[in-house]
Each structure stands twice: as C-alpha cells, then as structure tokens.
Computed example of a mutant assay.
Amino acid sequence: MSGGRCIELLEDKLLIRTLRPWSGNVGKRLVKSPKVYIRDSGLTHALLNLTSLDDLLGHPVVGASWEGFVIENLLSCLPIGTTPWFYRTSAGAEIDLVLEQGSTQRYAVEIKRSLAPSLSKGFYMGCEDIGATKRFLVYPGSERYPIANEVTVIPLIDMMKELASRN
C-alpha cells in the first residue's frame, strides 16, 4: 500500500486529519504539502507510553499534541461554509490555522502551548500575505487580552465560543 493510500485510509477511519495549505494568489513561493495531525491526542500519548502529565510535559511531542488538540476542537465549532487551511511560505511566513469564510472573513490563528506566548515575525508576515481580517493566538491560559498588531491572545474555550457564535 502506497504512503498516499495509507494516509487516505487513516483519514477515512477518522484517525488523522489532513490540513491543506492556503493557496491564494499572493505571489510567494508557498509550501504545498499538507499538514497531518493525529486527531486523538490521547491516542498519541498512549502510543508514546506517556502515562502522566509530567511524562507529557517533558516530551518533545507536547507542542504538536497541543496544536492538534486545539485544531480538532476549533474545527468542531466552525460555522457552515468555513474552510480551514494552514499557511506557510518558503521564506518562513507561517500561520497554524487559517479560517476562511467566503471572500470577506479570514481568521489567522496561531497556537502556542505557553502561558506567556509570543509571536514570530513569520506570523505577522503571513497575516499581511493572506489579508487576515482577525488575528488570534490560542494558548492554554484563562485570560483574554490584546497584544501587538491587532492580535488577541485567547483561551481555547473562548476561541471555540467565538467561532460557534458565527453560526
């Protein structure tokens, strides 16, 4: 069985999610390969034999696990007609999740597993490239607050409510 067919089978069984790259006409060299996430972070942790929170926090997978968990939860709240993407250029501009609704709404969502999150220059460049109408940084904290360049730092549950209210 080819690698592509294995990916399709795992997608069909709802074990993984493939996020396609955003490909608007920005005149930049874009990454074209999809990002693949294991949909159940508990399954990831079990496969890695991570049996405690300390095991998880000390493992290199912790950031990717958090990112996949956040993406799964956010996508479960999307309004009808919203398309999820990610954005990355060969020059380093990157956005973890782009949510596009029609041609007028484009959310840029960065995901960080830090209680004191910060954004890279690549996120801001990506926001300009795609014409983001709203910018968010989802983190595991409990406070919502603004930071530079019209970005809102937001807890996961608040971001889910923000998306659900668009239905």
Results as ranks from 00 to 15, higher is better:
M125W: 12
L30R: 03
L56D: 09
V61L: 04
L56N: 07
G102I: 10
L74P: 02
L56A: 04
E100W: 11
M160Y: 04
L47N: 13
S114A: 01
N73F: 08
S103I: 12
M1T: 14
G102A: 09
L10H: 04
G141D: 00
M125V: 13
M1W: 12
I157L: 15
F136I: 08
A91F: 06
L48N: 13
R166W: 14
L75I: 12
G131M: 04
V61Y: 08
C6V: 13
T152P: 00
T152L: 15
V151Q: 05
L50G: 04
L99F: 10
S76K: 09
M125E: 15
L47V: 13
G4W: 06
I16S: 01
I80H: 14
L56K: 07
C6Y: 13
Y87W: 12
K112N: 02
M1V: 03
I16Y: 05
R5A: 12
D12Y: 13
T133M: 05
S118G: 12
E110I: 03
S65C: 15
V98G: 06
V26Q: 03
G4C: 02
I80N: 11
E11F: 01
F136V: 07
E72D: 11
I7T: 09
D96I: 02
T133P: 02
S41G: 13
F136E: 06
E11C: 14
E67I: 07
P117C: 01
G24L: 11
Y107S: 11
K28I: 03
E162T: 11
E11L: 12
I157V: 15
G3F: 03
V62W: 02
P140A: 08
D129M: 03
G122Y: 01
L163P: 07
S114E: 03
L47Y: 08
M125C: 08
G92I: 10
I157C: 11
S90L: 13
R5M: 12
G63I: 12
T152M: 15
E162N: 07
G63A: 09
Y139N: 07
